[in-house]
Simulated scan of single mutants.
Amino acid sequence: MTPYKRRSFLGLFLALAARVSYAALPIESKKPLPENIKGWSPDWLIGTSLDLISETNDLQMRFGESGIVSVTAGPKGGPWAAPLFPWRIENKKLFIGDSTQPSDGLEFVSMTGTKLRVRSKGKEVVYEVSR
């Protein structure tokens, strides 16, 4: 297989994988976010998208009922990957993937309007929350 064909195949595969990962995610009809959110809860996470506010990276997480989150990630402008990961809440932290290390969890800091502040590995990051 020539390098051109391999790149074309990889591009087609990534495009299909992104579509399949979103199609496989069972998300309910969009209800409004509850007010006064004070921490992580499946009640408000299921059916919610978190979009990282960053000048250099794109990261979107869409949470489904079945304990699966679709993560679309990559540098601004692409290329992106869109894998599916398990998610869980443990000791007031949100964990994406299979990690059991406390430092890998996202710690809820605050939510004002649609802006969510979390602490990840000691750094504070901001997400736009939508449904």
Rank of each mutant, 00 (worst) to 15 (best):
N36L: 05
T48A: 11
L45G: 14
V125A: 09
P86R: 15
D98F: 14
A23E: 04
F95R: 00
S29W: 02
L84R: 14
V125D: 06
L50Y: 04
A24E: 15
N57D: 15
S120W: 13
S120E: 08
E35T: 07
V125R: 03
I89C: 13
R117T: 09
A24W: 14
V71C: 09
K123F: 15
V129A: 05
L106C: 02
E107P: 00
P34F: 08
F108G: 01
E128H: 10
G67W: 09
E35L: 04
Q101W: 09
L45K: 12
Y22P: 00
V118N: 05
N91E: 14
S103L: 09
L52D: 06
G64C: 12
V118I: 09
L84W: 06
E55F: 08
E124P: 02
V69H: 03
G74L: 09
P79E: 08
V125S: 04
I27V: 15
P26M: 12
Q60N: 12
A82I: 00
E65A: 15
K121N: 10
L52N: 05
S103R: 10
L52C: 06
G122W: 10
G67Q: 10
W44T: 03
Q101L: 13
L116Q: 04
E128Q: 12
L116H: 05
N57S: 14
D104A: 14
S70N: 11
P26Q: 15
L50A: 06
N91F: 01
S70V: 13
W87C: 00
S66R: 11
L50E: 06
D51W: 07
K93A: 13
S41R: 03
L84D: 13
G47D: 08
Y127K: 01
W87A: 01
M61P: 01
G39W: 09
A81T: 10
L50Q: 04
N36K: 11
T100F: 09
I53Y: 05
D104P: 10
S110D: 12
K92N: 15
P79R: 01
T56C: 07
V129S: 03
K38D: 06
Q101A: 15
A81Q: 10
G47L: 05
K115L: 12
R117P: 00
L59N: 07
R62I: 13
Y127D: 05
T48N: 07
S110L: 01
I37Y: 07
T72G: 06
K93E: 10
F95S: 02
S70D: 09
I53C: 06
